[in-house]
């Protein structure tokens, strides 16, 4: 599956280890430089889809007994593929002059 923007950010946030829902919301906002803010609705519909696709799974609750989620092996592979796809797009955009060249 191709993750949506919100789903991809959730996968990225989970690369650092398991998180609970609100922790994910904070991480996503930080990772995107404040550009992407997930509300509870968007976050948990993304979590539902990611769990259904077996890209993330539930893990042990934290000290405050909040449900936590972790990345599965399949989730990491999908995140890598998506990152590679974006990398390729950026390479093409540079080649076509849409983005400044790095060299």
């Amino acid at each position: 599956m191709t993750p949506t923007r919100a789903e991809f950010h959730v996968l990225l946030a989970l690369l650092d280890g398991p998180r609970h829902g609100y922790g994910l919301m904070q991480d996503v906002e930080e990772l995107s430089g404040g550009e992407l803010q997930l509300g509870p609705g968007t976050l948990y519909t993304a979590i539902k889809r990611l769990r259904a696709s077996k890209l993330i799974s539930e893990t042990d609750a934290d000290a405050d007994r909040r449900r936590c989620y972790k990345l599965t092996r399949k989730g990491k592979t999908v995140a890598q593929e998506e990152a590679q796809r974006m990398h390729e797009l950026v390479r093409v955009a540079r080649k076509r002059g849409l983005l400044p060249s790095t060299s």
Partner: peptide
């Protein structure tokens, strides 16, 4: 049933 409580908790924290 699956996510309601967690969403309410996230809402409170937010």
């Amino acid at each position: 049933d699956e996510y309601g409580k967690e969403m309410a908790a996230a809402f409170r924290a937010m």
